[in-house]
Simulated assay, not measured.
Amino acid sequence: MEIKHPEWLQLKTGSPIVYGYNQEWYKTSFQKTRGCGPTAAAMLLLYLNKREGGTLPYQDHSISTIIEILEDVWKFVTPNWLLGLNSTGKFCRGVNVLAAYYGLSWQCRELSLSAFRFKRQSLFQVVKFLEEGLASDCPIAFLNLHKGRVIALESWHWIVLVSLSYDESQNCYLATCYDGGRLLTFDLGLWLETTRFGGGFVYVAVKIS
């Protein structure tokens, strides 16, 4: 299962393709080191904006215009000095304030995963949430506070999930994400089982009246 237009979050400025936006595009060193959350939020918002016909005053034609959008999103989805944007709740509060500011009936849907393994949702529940988001044609922000045994991931980091598939040969769910220009795929169940600090998932959807 995949979002309908993953190419909307790709930049074909040359070779290779740039998969998603990069927090390194922010202006200050602090933003560059803390900016993964607002970068992920910008990707979710721009995708929904394009899907819904341009309700936000955002365009994504070039890296220079995306940088302007990143700066605007930062005003609302703002990491703190010590821990950055370290929860789905903080992420959602910022996105909801941004949506209200622009008069949009958009809302975050979140799944927070505890640091305590016995409190975490099951793999079945996580897959169900992700499939609901992807089926609604929404990219999903993934907060990974600890990568566990998944070598491809970076701890204390937000990236954007664009597809999920089940690999029968490996008996696992494979999540495909965009991370600062990279395309990466990882074993969702392995992460859920081995992460020490948890994390969570968020997607932005249009409110149903």
Rank of each mutant, 00 (worst) to 15 (best):
G133S: 02
S105T: 10
V126Q: 00
F129W: 00
Q170N: 10
R34K: 15
T195Y: 02
H5Q: 13
W81C: 08
S29H: 11
I151N: 13
L153C: 08
G103R: 04
S136E: 14
Y58K: 10
V150S: 12
S209Q: 13
W158P: 02
F30M: 11
L134F: 01
A115W: 08
R93H: 10
V95S: 09
L82V: 12
V150A: 05
W74L: 01
L45M: 08
S136V: 04
L48Y: 02
I140D: 10
L113T: 05
T88C: 10
A152D: 09
H157F: 05
N171R: 12
G53M: 09
Y58I: 06
F124R: 15
A152E: 15
A42W: 01
S136C: 13
F142I: 10
L123V: 08
R182T: 13
K128W: 10
R51G: 02
F118V: 14
C172M: 15
W156M: 08
A40W: 02
F91E: 01
E24I: 09
H157G: 00
D72A: 09
K207L: 14
L184C: 09
L153P: 03
L11M: 12
G148Y: 02
G94K: 06
C36Q: 04
T13V: 12
L113G: 11
D137F: 06
Q59V: 12
L164F: 02
F197D: 15
F197R: 12
G198Y: 03
E24K: 14
K4H: 15
Q31K: 06
L9V: 09
T33W: 13
L46D: 15
G54N: 03
L174I: 15
V204K: 03
W74H: 03
R120L: 00
Q23P: 07
V18N: 14
A152I: 08
S209D: 11
P16M: 03
F129P: 05
T39R: 06
L83C: 09
Q170A: 11
E193G: 09
L56I: 01
I140K: 14
P38R: 01
S209M: 12
T55S: 14
I69A: 11
N22R: 01
S122P: 12
T195H: 07
F91M: 02
V95P: 00
M43T: 03
L183F: 15
L161C: 06
E2D: 15
L164K: 06
V18Y: 11
A41E: 03
S64P: 05
F201K: 00
V206D: 13
L46A: 02
P79D: 08
A175E: 01
N80K: 11
A115H: 10
L145P: 07
I208A: 15
L161M: 07
G133W: 00
M1Y: 12
G53E: 12
F142L: 13
G54T: 11
C36S: 07
K12R: 15
P57V: 01
F186C: 04
S105I: 05
A141R: 05
L161S: 01
N144P: 01
F124I: 12
S105D: 13
G84D: 05
S122Y: 04
S122D: 06
G198W: 00
Y102Q: 05
Y21K: 09
D60F: 13
I151E: 12
S155T: 01
W81L: 15
L46G: 10
T13W: 11
S122Q: 03
R34Y: 01
F91K: 04
K75S: 04
P38G: 06
A135D: 13
